[in-house]
Computed example of a mutant assay.
Amino acid sequence: MTKGARTVTEDTSVQEVASLMCLYRFSGLPVVEGDKLIGFIAEKDVLAQLFPSVEDAMESMATIDLKDKVGEYKSTLSKKVSDLMTRGAKTVSPDMPVLKAAIIMANNRFRRIPVEENGKLVGMLSLGDIHKAIFHQSLTEG
């Protein structure tokens, strides 16, 4: 896992989150209150604001202007993390077997997941971290 993960708060602007995601290639960020994990905001949460609703798509797909939808991105940037975040995000613990964490991530289609201990965020685990751990283990076992 990566310790000292970059975090945001509920009051952080979506524009700041989008900047971090684009500049540092974060696919998601933990949302904290102090050192307590309260949620998660992912790229899909931000981009989902641009997708037409199912009702709109069924009623008027031919008339949905996708350029206008992309133009709505600016209004999404003015929102706060609390408007888009997932509360009660799934987590793993630091002592969880790496393959169990990988299964949780795969079943939920996550590329990264918060690592929580006693209600506090202690790091982030990525698929890259898991792959590296398995690779090193295979080398040391001969």
Results as ranks from 00 to 15, higher is better:
1 M>A: 06
1 M>S: 08
1 M>K: 00
2 T>M: 09
2 T>H: 07
4 G>D: 06
4 G>H: 03
6 R>Q: 07
6 R>C: 03
12 T>H: 06
12 T>K: 05
13 S>H: 09
14 V>C: 09
15 Q>W: 09
16 E>Y: 02
16 E>S: 08
17 V>K: 03
20 L>R: 02
21 M>A: 05
22 C>G: 11
22 C>D: 10
23 L>H: 02
23 L>T: 04
23 L>C: 01
24 Y>R: 04
24 Y>D: 04
25 R>P: 01
25 R>T: 06
28 G>N: 03
30 P>T: 00
31 V>Y: 02
31 V>M: 03
32 V>I: 08
32 V>F: 01
33 E>H: 14
33 E>N: 11
34 G>H: 06
35 D>G: 07
35 D>R: 12
35 D>H: 06
36 K>N: 07
36 K>I: 05
36 K>A: 11
37 L>I: 09
38 I>M: 07
39 G>N: 05
41 I>S: 04
41 I>K: 06
43 E>Q: 10
47 L>K: 10
48 A>P: 10
51 F>S: 10
51 F>P: 03
52 P>V: 05
53 S>I: 10
55 E>F: 12
56 D>K: 10
58 M>I: 15
58 M>S: 15
59 E>N: 14
61 M>P: 09
62 A>V: 11
63 T>W: 08
63 T>V: 09
64 I>A: 04
65 D>W: 02
65 D>Q: 06
66 L>A: 13
66 L>F: 15
67 K>N: 11
68 D>I: 07
69 K>R: 15
69 K>M: 02
70 V>G: 00
71 G>Q: 09
71 G>A: 08
71 G>S: 13
72 E>A: 08
73 Y>V: 09
74 K>I: 13
77 L>T: 10
77 L>M: 15
78 S>G: 11
78 S>P: 13
78 S>K: 13
79 K>Q: 14
79 K>W: 12
79 K>D: 12
80 K>M: 14
81 V>N: 07
81 V>P: 05
81 V>I: 12
82 S>G: 15
84 L>H: 12
87 R>P: 08
87 R>E: 14
89 A>W: 03
90 K>G: 08
90 K>Q: 13
92 V>Q: 03
92 V>H: 01
93 S>Q: 14
94 P>V: 08
97 P>Q: 04
97 P>V: 02
97 P>R: 06
99 L>P: 02
101 A>R: 01
101 A>M: 00
102 A>S: 08
103 I>Y: 06
104 I>R: 06
104 I>K: 08
105 M>C: 07
106 A>F: 15
107 N>A: 11
110 F>P: 03
111 R>W: 12
111 R>Y: 14
112 R>C: 07
112 R>D: 04
113 I>Y: 01
114 P>F: 03
114 P>N: 06
114 P>I: 03
116 E>L: 07
116 E>F: 03
117 E>S: 13
118 N>D: 14
120 K>V: 03
122 V>D: 00
125 L>E: 00
126 S>A: 11
126 S>Q: 04
126 S>T: 09
127 L>S: 08
128 G>H: 14
131 H>E: 10
131 H>W: 11
131 H>P: 05
132 K>A: 15
136 H>R: 12
136 H>Q: 13
137 Q>R: 13
138 S>E: 12
141 E>K: 14
